[in-house]
């Protein structure tokens, strides 16, 4: 997967800024996409529309509420992956369970090296993220998460039996 980085040098980007509570009753996914990150970054839609498709951020991305609206809103605004130092569990699972976007855990070296606007390449097979001609390891997915990602969602992964 290739895409341009939208970088926020912030920890604890929470689900209330990803999609505020006022929109939790909205079931039109495109409408959710129009309000993604609006509390944090008024220029987010513009940046996503201009080809930014990979958010890069610090620790504990997606902390807060269990709302699946958060990865849905990001996904519908054009985001295909989030590369962060760490994720809150429910957000992480929501990303892969609904096949909304790819959550990739990166290390401090990659986080420091990636600049806003960089062209990135995420290779889930090799377990790397590449920026400015240099490649960095990403944290491997667990067996179950790999299966969910490969299948395209929790209910396609055949884990029930």
């Amino acid at each position: 997967m290739r895409g341009r980085a939208i970088k926020y040098e912030r920890d604890n980007i929470d689900t209330d800024v990803i999609i505020p509570g006022a929109y939790l009753k909205v079931h039109d996914y495109d409408e959710l996409g129009r309000h993604a990150m609006e509390g944090l970054d008024p220029r987010f839609r513009e940046r996503a529309a201009a080809g930014g498709s990979i958010i890069v951020a610090g620790r504990n991305f997606g902390c807060g509420s269990s709302r699946e609206h958060a990865p849905i809103a990001l996904s519908r605004s054009g985001i295909r992956a989030v590369a962060a130092l760490s994720f809150a569990r429910i957000f992480y699972r929501n990303c892969v369970d609904g096949a909304f976007l790819l959550p990739v855990e990166i290390g401090g070296e990659a986080y420091a090296a990636i600049s806003d606007g960089d062209e990135l390449e995420i290779d889930t097979g090799a377990g790397t993220i590449a920026a400015a001609g240099k490649s960095y390891p990403t944290r491997p997915f667990s067996d179950i998460i790999s299966r969910i990602i490969a299948a395209g969602g929790l209910f396609k992964a055949g884990l029930d039996g």
């Binding site: 269990s66 699946e68 429910i90 957000f91 699972r93 929501n94 369970d97 609904g98 969602g153 929790l154 209910f155 029930d160």
Partner: peptide, 14 residues
């Protein structure tokens, strides 16, 4: 513990 909506469906079903 809290779970996401896909997990809610998984629990409802299984």
């Amino acid at each position: 513990f809290g779970i996401g909506t896909s997990e809610v469906e998984h629990v409802l079903a299984t």
